[in-house]
Amino acid sequence: MSTMRVLPAGDRALLVELGSGEEAEAFHAELLRRRARGTLPAVREIVPAARTVLLDGLDDPARFAKGLADWEIPALVSGAGSTVELPVRYDGPDLAAVAELWGVPAGEVGRIHARTPFRVAFCGFAPGFGYLTGLAERYAVPRRSTPRTAVPAGAVALAGAYTGVYPRSSPGGWQLIGSTDAVLWDHARVPAALLTPGTRVRFVPEEG
């Protein structure tokens, strides 16, 4: 992968920047494969994000960075990983605004969204909040100019080309297109997060 850049992030960490979101997901998948095989040096955190993967808690980041040059990273296999189906009602207060941005009738937003296969690219913002990729770039929408002070738990929302589901009520600036009753985060459950990086996601509209 010629586009890989290794950036400093403190005495025990590296930020590896890839050329695209897909490459970052492929690199992240390779890190998890190596860790499962026991060939990855000890590392406390592996944090994927939009175009980067952070490795934190490495004993010798410089040595790890040197070794990366020899890595061969297979492209992401579509269809790999487990699939989570989220029941959804496309009833969000920003549905009309999103429809206008997309240039489609309001009823079409849910249909387009529900037929899109998603993948959890990374988590952040709140425990269990996944940034889901899958929507084409032409469906990217801006954040709301004024964030809401309280977005309800289970709200299905868009920002950029990402889809996210609020695990609990919190302030938020994403455009709300729907809602789900799925429990995204339950710290008494193992695993606590329903959506973990690499998980495939389908939104399934509820009948009625």
Binding site: A9, G10, L15, E45, A50, R51, T52
Partner: peptide, 10 residues
């Protein structure tokens, strides 16, 4: 800047 991982002390 696209979201990226943050370390303690950043």
């Amino acid at each position: 800047l696209p979201s990226e991982g943050m370390v303690l002390g950043a």
